[in-house]
Design a protein around this nucleic acid. Structure first.
Lengths: 344, 344
DNA sequence: TTGCCTTACCCAATCGATTGGGTTGCATTG
DNA sequence: CAATGCAACCCAATCGATTGGGTAAGGCAA
């Protein structure tokens, strides 16, 4: 069929037109118009012939040519701290699904949570002429977003939010409150928080929600009991170590704003001879697939990660239509498991 | 600066040419040529002026226009079972880095390990006119690759290999052998394998390597002791359950071809009152970041995942240059931890 | 019969970059 | 002095699709 192994030359509008004896522009209108909008484009009969031949020859429009003319690429750029962070990977799956359904393709790039890298990656995507950006690593203290706004670049935030910009996130304050209510009900009165990175709204909101609710319930929580940390297992390890050293008497429960930090905490607790669920209650966040599969299943605030990704795409599409969109916060739910099931 | 918030019209070659009073083609040659190849393009002085103005106005060539003319998009398509599989996510990080360094962008899509979906996603990428594909979910029994070859589509495999196609993988047979040698040395004589999906070379090679080595050492291993399973925690759970039911007397060691399956195994063992590392040795595969952070740190065969991703990009670039490339297998190493450290 | 609509098309410019094939002006060479 | 070479450019076609603006043919009403 293709003996030389060279990619066959793709079928073009001109090819179709030549075979049918009509003009390329007519073919374009037939294939492009939304079936109704083909006002005076062609007769029903011609339209049928065009569509038939297109199918037969496997015509697929050249996206580069289309983009050149229409100034739209139907590509979105997605920036995340790292795809090897399961949370972002799942959100990205949601993005990819929703984007594909809408006829968009997506580029993802890792910024490693470094503002310099984030800026560099953003420029690469803009140089590619993406139609819009989904930014999953927004820093509370950055100025990239301000610049992008000035340059008229359409974008939305995902996962982390920043006041004044459109975003698709979990209602993290609510998630923190759920964790606080749960631990309070279980009889805990001394708690500590593994709070995550202070530049990320996820960490800040979850912590703030927890603390707010805790105080509402009449609990006390000191500054020492709130430890900022990296989001990964090592961060959770170190933070737990700090908490165990700083708090006397030690807390009876921990809230980690991230499942991986929680897993790190488990390790540290174990090496201090403390068993999770019995000597120390533990609640994580995101309910990643591992939480329920751990030797001692981990309680976790479930956030709808796939849905957050899908929502980000919807929002970005509305931004592109010129709508003024608000931030969307999706509801988390609490999954109680063995790590915090015991009544004190 | 841009009060209406509309994206500023990008600077084009024509703009530069107009300002300099020369022809766009001259500007193109100056900016495009590899500094030496600009044979008779322009005088050194003119070239300097061109480059200066380009920098000043922030000229960046329109990739769509370039692609249209050159028939190359400088985009690679990447297909993986799922990015939420940490192993693939890390390989993808390697791909992204290497691709970016070479001036390529990458699309990733999830096939969910479904051949139908894989085919669909492949077509989407080809419709986007990617220059080549990196296929991370090759099925041993599929026929997609054959079709792609016939159509002259440049591609390489990653993570999983198939005889006769270029690929970048871990030397999985060796990895299996390392695990076998280790468990044998620790005194184990009854072992079982959580073997993974039989359509994936990773699973097949790791299992075969393990069994080969085991027999070389004089060990016996029955069919019942090799259980095929999904790659995730649930798969590991079910497989372990099966092994504990089928093997009498039970094995003293398990080799799981994937860390997540190993984590699933830990859960099942625990619910049977068996403690990993003491009652049952366990070795996983890939040495994902979690392995060392688990409550009982997991021994695991370390595979150079980032490097595999980078290698896939290098191979694909060589394929594009028309070179005939062979499969590359990168060396794994064994990380022994508490889960299999005890001498029987 | 004239004027006016429709219908069903066609024409040509355009998007931005690339590239094979010129052209011009000047200097060198035999 | 004619011929040749070379440096430094310019020209125009091209990639494939889109789109504003035609236009010819036919029908219908006044």
């Amino acid at each position: 069929m293709n003996p030389k192994g060279s990619a066959e030359r793709a079928v073009t509008l001109k090819d179709l037109a030549a075979r049918l004896g009509i003009h390329p522009s007519t073919v374009s209108r037939v294939l492009h118009s939304d079936s109704a909008q083909a006002r005076g484009a062609a007769s029903a009969e011609t339209a049928l012939r065009v569509r038939e031949l297109a199918r037969e020859l496997g015509y697929s429009p050249d996206p580069q040519a289309t983009s050149l003319r229409t100034r739209r690429t139907r590509m979105f750029g997605v920036i995340v701290p790292r795809l090897s962070d399961l949370v972002l990977a799942i959100m990205y799956e949601g993005i990819e699904e929703a984007a594909a359904e809408a006829g968009y393709s997506t580029f993802v790039m890792n910024s490693r949570d470094d503002p310099e890298e984030e800026r560099r990656k953003t420029e690469i995507m803009l140089a590619r002429r993406v139609d819009g950006l989904i930014i999953g690593d927004a820093h509370l203290d950055g100025n990239l977003l301000h610049d992008l706004t000035n340059r008229g670049v359409p974008f939305v935030l995902m996962n982390r939010r920043i006041e004044g910009y459109p975003s698709a996130t979990c209602d993290d304050a609510l998630g923190g409150r759920l964790a606080a209510s749960h631990l309070w009900e279980k009889g805990h009165r001394r708690v500590a928080v593994i709070a995550g990175e202070p530049y990320a709204s996820t960490a800040v909101d979850r912590t703030a929600g927890f603390v707010d609710r805790w105080r509402e319930l009449g609990g006390a929580i000191s500054e020492d009991a709130i430890v900022w940390s990296r989001f990964d297992t090592v961060g959770g390890r170190d933070a737990t170590e700090k908490i165990l050293h700083a708090c006397a008497p030690p807390p009876t429960a921990l809230f980690a704003v991230n499942d991986f930090a929680a897993i790190g905490a488990i390790g540290t607790l174990r090496s201090h001879g403390l068993q999770v669920g019995r000597d120390m209650a533990l609640v994580g966040y995101n309910d990643t697939s591992l939480a329920s599969q751990l030797p001692i299943p981990l309680s976790s605030v479930h956030s709808p990660m796939n849905e957050i990704g899908r929502t980000a795409v919807q929002l970005l599409r509305r931004v592109l239509k010129g709508e003024h969109v608000q931030a969307v916060q999706l509801r988390p739910t609490l999954c109680v498991r063995e790590s915090s099931a015991l009544q004190l």
